[in-house]
Simulated scan of single mutants.
Amino acid sequence: MMADSATNHATNLGTIERTALLTAALREAETRREDRLYSDPYAAAFAGDLGRSLLAEIRAATFPPGRARTLPSTPDYNAIRTRFFDDWLTDAAREVDQVVIAPCGMDSRAFRLGWPAGVRLFELDRPVVLAAKDEVLGAAEPVVDRRAIGVDLREDGWEADLAAAGYDPGRRSAWLLEGLLYYIPEPDAHRILGRVRAQTAPGSLVAADIVNSAALTLPNMRGLLDVFAGWGCPWLFGSDEPEELFARHGVRATAVQPGDATADYGRWPDPVPPRTDTGVRRVFFVHGTRTGE
């Protein structure tokens, strides 16, 4: 049985970790839509009042009364991102039986997706995040072999903790790095991607989301960027060539943008600029296969 919300532990979350409550609030709002792209019965309890207040700030910046929207629609983006990676994980689990979500945040995929028998799902995040999550989940039973591991991905040693939980780096796996790369400095992003490479066998599957460089600096992004910076979690890293970035770390990848044919679901409200256009904001869903190189 789920608790009402992560009231006690949410106040202990750091600034970046609190964005997991924003994501939960976005998923709560999506679940209430008649045309929803997915249903997350845990999102409302995960979000709590704090998550909803964060979402209210995002809505106020994105949809200013009496003025046209100039910022990307975070609710539509998040709905598409969640559905895109839901589908990616479901497909990946038909090919591999080790799946890693890092960081997992207030993700409920272990409880709401259809997982094949025999899959192990490893959830990595800081201990305080997992404590807040478990407070909400209570006695709820996952529908997959869920193994939660309290680690900081930017610190040393989590590979040993992952192995101790039953992960085998010598076998194929699938890794999802969602809502991570743009919050950390570029050296940390390369270091984490390099460490994922060291933990994945050839043929493993890797996916992530990332913004482009212009999204960090464009004046028409300022309203959104200022909200995150004001929370103490500014966007720090973007890549104009995500395929090249992932190739540097042994992943032959494809990058799509919300609104592309495979990442639309009838919900993206804005034009999708061609990749040849410069000086425009972009977000990418990157997914690919670990090479043997």
Score class of each variant (00 low, 15 high):
G138C: 12
A139C: 06
E141F: 04
E141H: 13
V143H: 13
R147G: 10
R147C: 12
I149T: 04
G150Q: 10
V151Y: 07
R154I: 06
E155K: 14
E155N: 09
D156I: 08
G157I: 11
W158E: 01
L162S: 06
A163M: 15
A164C: 05
G166I: 06
G166C: 12
G170K: 11
G170A: 14
S173M: 09
S173K: 06
A174N: 03
W175C: 11
L176F: 12
G179C: 05
G179P: 03
Y182E: 08
I184C: 06
P185E: 11
E186I: 03
H190D: 14
H190F: 04
L193M: 14
G194S: 02
R195E: 15
A198V: 01
A198P: 01
A198G: 12
Q199Y: 02
T200N: 05
A201C: 10
P202N: 04
S204M: 06
D209R: 04
I210T: 08
V211W: 00
S213Y: 00
A214C: 00
A214I: 00
A215F: 15
L218V: 05
L218Y: 04
L218S: 04
W231L: 15
W235I: 00
G238K: 02
S239D: 14
D240S: 00
D240H: 00
E241I: 02
E241M: 03
L245H: 07
A247I: 02
A247V: 01
R248D: 08
G250C: 10
A255P: 06
A255L: 03
A255I: 10
Q257S: 11
P258S: 09
A261P: 00
A261R: 14
Y265W: 11
R267W: 01
W268L: 10
V272Y: 00
P273F: 09
T276R: 15
T278N: 03
T278Y: 00
G279E: 04
G279N: 02
